[in-house]
Amino acid sequence: MLEDFFVRALLAGLGVAVIAGPLGCFVVWRRLAYFGDTLAHAALLGIALGLLLELNLFFAVFFVAAVIALSLLALQRHSALPSDALLGLLSHGALALGLTVLALMTWVRVDLPALLFGDILAISVSDLAVIGGVGVFVLATLLVMWRQFLTETLDPDLAEAEGLHPRWARLVFLLLLALMVALTMRIVGVLLTTALLIIPAATARRLTGSPEAMAVAASAVGCFSVIVGLFASLHWDLPSGPLIVVVAFGLFLVSLVRRG
């Protein structure tokens, strides 16, 4: 069954959509949409460095995204620049640097559209194993640390006062986000990674009444988008990544109509 590229694509997309649900909710709650974009742009630099140094691309992207996430955390505390300016600086700096390094490596043939918009149909069995393993790890961490993440999001001081560890929660959350970006960029590409995080969460917000329900609903909306998007892309021979996002966006529009 796994020999079929379409089945692999479907499994990979579903795996990523499941973890994108709860993580995307936190991205929305914590107003980190632009932050997610910055990490995704940094992913391109990760790919470039990975190819240059002949590293595993997943770990290269995770590494660069994690470094960018942690430097943002440090910079926000000590810099005179506002957060959005810092994000723009790192985001476009990393994107431009990544594109330059890729162009310099004349000996590597790079499929740039695949990097920018994803190449879910090229997912291999070992890619699937990575998505499965990392997915289970991210979900388990989310479950174990759910109360920590949620309380830190609502009020870090309250979390600290009542015996939780908001500093750890923040750090772990950023690392999970970096992992997520490293997984997602294969599916929908650098430019659409945050879409998979934010759009299902935004749709779920309109349908649910508790943070937990919103997280589960976001996963469900993401999975539905992946299934419909992939079948549509097969049927009409259109690019899968953008189509998955188009379906997710369509669902969001429908959710708007539903509540009026």
């Binding site: 709650w29 609502l154 009020d155 001081d157 309250l158 935004a202 009444g209 508790s210 943070p211 329900a213």
Partner: peptide, 17 residues
């Protein structure tokens, strides 16, 4: 400790009863 903060930075994007 039970802490009552001045206000809550609750974003409208989080459904919370």
């Amino acid at each position: 400790i039970g802490y009552v903060p001045q206000r809550l930075a609750l974003s409208a994007s989080m459904p919370m009863t």
